[in-house]
Design a protein around this nucleic acid. Structure first.
Lengths: 115, 115
DNA sequence: AAAACACTCAATCAAGTGATTGAATGATGT
DNA sequence: ACATCATTCAATCACTTGATTGAGTGTTTT
């Protein structure tokens, strides 16, 4: 710990813990390249598991398992149509989050002023 | 794999892989409640390790280690002033991402229309 | 220069995560 | 009803991650 006296620390409220938990869970779900690619594709078009599998050149259970997690975190919704189950983003907020994340990721590594 | 023929699949471009990796790394860093709380605090005010430790009622090495990871992912920057090392968010994009994430996390669990 | 303070580093260890495989479910066509 | 196709489930296993502890680095004060 520390000895130093920091003035007015009481004034800074620590953020709502439950909210942070929930938000972190969403970020965690977005924090895997494979899942993020899935979401990127779904942000353009509703797609079924076999389509996603084909596009990503992956295997079906892997894709399905990732979608399951994304569904659990309410980032995607599903809709059955005959033999196929189509997935799409849950809402516009998710889309925005993904866009912002990708936008930041593509920034020129802001090493302008300091360390 | 699958037998079914999905038309026009070629037309859907898979997102840039490196970009997804980078964006996912950012999301992953945001995807932990402890780190997210740190960032929330830093989004309000530049703070040093001992202040953060005190506010979060945690121990110094734990906080320091989290900040190290956040620095590695370029989400925060640091500045030394005497004995203290002050941390702040790296840029406005990060702030936006955090705000969006928290905003979505606080949504009323959109269970309106479908499963 | 020695002591005190703020912080980081390094190593260990427990717990969580994701890939993979084969089996199960659910819908359609014959 | 049976076979087939699309998807999910379940279980194992390797790998990663984060907490914790004690030692180390850099800065100020006396």
């Amino acid at each position: 710990m520390s000895d130093c006296e920091h003035a007015k620390i009481e004034k800074i409220e620590v953020a709502d813990s439950e909210l942070c938990e929930r938000a972190a869970a969403i970020f965690r779900a977005l924090g895997d390249p494979n899942r993020l690619k899935l979401l990127c594709l779904l942000s353009k078009k509703e797609l079924c598991v076999s389509e996603l599998t084909q596009i990503l050149a992956d295997n079906v259970p892997a894709v399905s398992q990732r979608l399951k997690l994304l569904k659990l975190e309410r980032l995607v919704k599903q809709r059955r149509q005959g033999k196929h189950i189509f997935y799409r983003l849950a809402d516009a907020h998710i889309q925005l989050l993904i866009e912002n994340g990708l936008a930041h990721g593509s920034e020129p590594t802001t090493d302008s002023n300091e360390e």
